[in-house]
Structures are given as C-alpha cells and as structure tokens.
Design a protein around this nucleic acid. Structure first.
Lengths: 249, 249
DNA sequence: CGATTACTTGACACCGGTCAAAGCCGGTGG
DNA sequence: CCACCGGCTTTGACCGGTGTCAAGTAATCG
C-alpha cells in the first residue's frame, strides 16, 4: 500500500526514486464520515494529506452546505506553503478517511533540499487552483447535465492519477446529495440528470460504481479538457522549468 | 499618483516606508478596452500589475464568455510566484488599463531581501484564492439578487483598499453584460435584479456610479463577510507570522 | 447629427426547485 | 433467517426563477 501522494507525483512527473522516502511523514489517523478533518475558520500551521477515502471542502451557507471541492487520496486539505493560515472553509470526511497531518514548516524544510519536490508541490497547488477555476466556470455557465458530466470526468481523471480509476469505470462513494451540494443543484434534480445520462448511455452506474462505455464520448459531452489538470505535458513542463532555471544561472 | 499596490499593502499591513521604493518596476503601457492583457492559454514567466482601470479574467465557454474574476488597480493578472506558468484563462481589459509587466524572477529577487514584502505577496495571493472560493460559493448556491449584491460588496471593499471607493459610493465602469457574464446570468435578468435592488433602496445607481444609502444594510442583504478578504486583522496576522517565525529560530 | 452601444420592457418558455410520498437497499437485532 | 429500520434513491405534481426573443428607448461617441 503506497502513499498516494508519491504515486501521484510519480505519475505526473515521471518515476523519481528520490522522492519515495521523503514523503513518509509519520502516523496517520482515521476520520469517520460526516466528521470534520479541519473545522471551518480554524487557524492552522499544518496541512493534512488524505491517504484514503473521499472528503470535501465545504462552507455552510444559510441552511445548506456548499461543497467547494472534493479531496481524493493524495490531496492536501489546504495549500502546504504558508504558515498560520486561517481557513475560510472546513474539510469534512464523506467516507471513512485516512489522514496524515504534515507541518508546513517541516514540509518546506524537506522541499528545500529537493528542488524537484518543491516544483512538484507547486504544480499540485496550481492544479488545485485550476480545478477551482473550472468549477466556477462550469457551475456558473453550464446546464446541469454538462456540469454533472464534467464533474465525473474530473473525478475520474484525478482518481486515475492515484490508481483508483481506469478508462472504463471507477468507484465513486458519493451520495446524490453530495453531488447536488457540489453542483449547486437539488438532490431531486441530480437524480433526474443522472437518469438522463444513463438513457443517453453516456454513463452506466450501479450502486457506487460508475462505468463509462466510451470515455471519449463522455468527455466530449462534458466539454472536458484534461490539460487543465496538467495531466499531459506535466513531465515536459517540469523538465523545461529545470532547464530554464539552469540557463538563468 | 501612487502605485496602487503600494497603497494596498500599506492599507492592509500598516504603513511601511521600506516598501515604497521597492515596487517601482519600470515602464507601464496602456491597453484599450476589449483587448487582451494576457491571452488565454499563454505561457508566461511574468505577471502584470494593473495600475489603472478594470480588467477581468475570463474563459470562452462555447458561445459565451465566462468572467472568472475582476481585476482592480493593485491586482496581479496571475500569481507572481512560479516561473513558466501556462495560464488556463485570459485577461482582458474592460476599460482602458494601465499595466506594468513584472518578471516573476525579479519579483522573487526583490522579495527575498524583504521578508515583509514576501509575506505581503503571500497574503495577497491567499486573498485572491479566497475571492475565487467565494465566487464559487455564491454563484452556485445563491439566488441572483444576493449574488449581485455580494459582488457589489466585494468590489466596493477591494476598490476601497486602493482609495477608489468609500462607504457611500464608488465608480463602477462595468456594463450589465460584464456583470451577467461574471454572475452566470443573462443581461436581461441582471437589469431586472438591479431594478429590484433599487426599489428596495439597497443601492442607488446613476450611470456608472453606485451609491449606497446604508452599507450595513447592503452587506447584511448579501450575507457579506469581509473577513475573507483579510481586510480586518491582516495587520495583526502579519505581526503574528513574524513573531512565530522568530520564535522558531 | 447619425450610428453604435448600452439599457429597459413585455410576453412567453423552460430549467430546475419544492414538497410529499413511495420504493429500495444495507445493516442490525431478535 | 426474517423483520425492522434509517438513509438513500426514485417518482409525480406543481411552482417559481431565469432565459430567450424581440422591440423600443436612452446614452455615448465620432
């Protein structure tokens, strides 16, 4: 059972044995569903690495919960760079989660000895930012069916990065209510849109398993552009950054 | 005529004479309305500081433009930290803009000599992130009138930081179409919601000037919580970061 | 002063929300 | 092994917020 962050970094930047040992930070603990991993508005000088399960960033707006992002294994709850962040969101476990706390100071210390790790963390942070931008664009400007399809594409791609999905299916332990709170829709409507996607045979879902007859078709329907996740070309980009960094010296 | 970034940093972190000279990076140029300051998808190793005018981050989705954020004087088009970013959005001038390009490498160089500047840039970056989160939450989970009201609160607060707004009014050079593309609404509906807010006497707008009879009432209506902009307490936070940084040594 | 761009208005359609009830499914305990 | 239970999913009827289309009015600029 490998650290999913290591898996992800290797997947994105090419296998790099040097990193394997660096990212074992210590003991992990479990968080049960519906419990907070990080409380809303808390002030922290650490981040938490999700090792297993699915969690979400959220904020309570009036009566209802707004989900602002999903976390899958290999993700950090908050950016690992600055000390003493006051978060303006909470992080809550959606399934049972395995979590490891990482001091930001410690992570910076490790990264300062390993420029590749430092670059990798930066890229992951930009990926996080890109996902947020994409949610904003989709949720504000797309009809419900495209929104939902796009979210499925994104989650599949991110899960695939840590070996939890392939091109044809993956396990998605979210309720329709979770999806609704993320997409800004009602639970009832999410249900109907799911049925609609099934009728079109764009997805086939049984229980928690989503299976995808034709990934290309799904991504086309959603208008999904995987490059924003730095999925392809990330290795090239890392190389270029190193080479230009050397040129400048 | 002062550099609005200096103004903003002083406003947020307290007057700090040491910064005054550091943030003059060189020549600026003008960009006319509707022209790109940075093209979508371009790869840059610099950022651009907006010195005057209003611009937006945007992305074209199908037929229509999605506005993903507004830029006011003192804002950067993209985060100033990493070299060689491939942007997944464009930046376009909404009014005539005065823009100054800043090499990321150079900015890092300057910041490395001035820990206060470095911290300030970090905080500004987190502020940017917080605004994005807030847009996502509002646009996905609020009815049109609250959304619009919230956006007006945010813009007023940000403009006030650089001396371009007070509690009772400010100049907002946006068309209703700009607002619509930002809020994910149709132009027609933005028009109607504006009328509605005027009927409630929550805002009074004449031409491009928005005047606010009672700021408290507007912010209450919008559910606006200014702390997410680091507006209050930012000075304290900066102090705390410095003192804890020293303690660790 | 004409021409273009922005704003305003009304009628109508539709997407998605709400409410309420009924199945389904997995777990728990007798 | 079955009965029960709570959470999740599915349905239907109805309503309201927003979008669309199209036309008309104001404002801005050369």
């Amino acid at each position: 059972m490998q650290n999913p962050l290591v898996l992800k970094i290797n997947q994105l930047f090419g296998s790099d044995a040097a990193l394997h040992g660096l990212l074992d930070f210590g003991p992990s603990h479990r968080v049960l569903p519906h419990l907070d991993i990080v409380g809303d508005g808390s002030e922290v000088s650490h981040t938490s690495l999700l090792l297993g399960g699915v969690a979400c960033r959220y904020r309570i707006m009036g009566e209802q919960r707004a989900i602002l992002g999903f976390l899958v294994p290999g993700d950090f709850t908050n950016p690992p760079f600055p000390d003493h962040q006051r978060l303006n969101f909470g992080v809550s476990a959606l399934t049972t989660c395995k979590v490891m706390n990482v001091s930001c100071a410690h992570l910076r210390e490790v990264a300062s000895h390993t420029p590749q790790l430092s670059t990798a963390l930066w890229t992951l942070n930009q990926m996080d930012h890109a996902i947020l931008l994409s949610w904003l664009a989709q949720n504000s400007h797309c009809p419900a069916d495209k929104r939902l399809a796009h979210l499925l594409c994104e989650l599949r791609a991110r899960l695939a990065l840590v070996g939890l999905a392939d091109d044809n299916s993956f396990l998605l332990p979210l309720t329709q209510e979770d999806l609704a709170d993320a997409l800004g829709l009602s639970t009832v409507h999410v249900n109907r849109v799911l049925q609609h996607l099934r009728e079109l045979d764009i997805i086939r879902s049984m229980g928690r398993t989503v299976s995808i007859p034709d990934l290309g078709q799904l991504e086309a329907f959603a208008g999904f552009n995987p490059t924003y996740l730095h999925l392809r070309g990330a290795v090239m980009r890392l190389d270029r950054m190193h080479s230009t960094a050397q040129m400048r010296k």
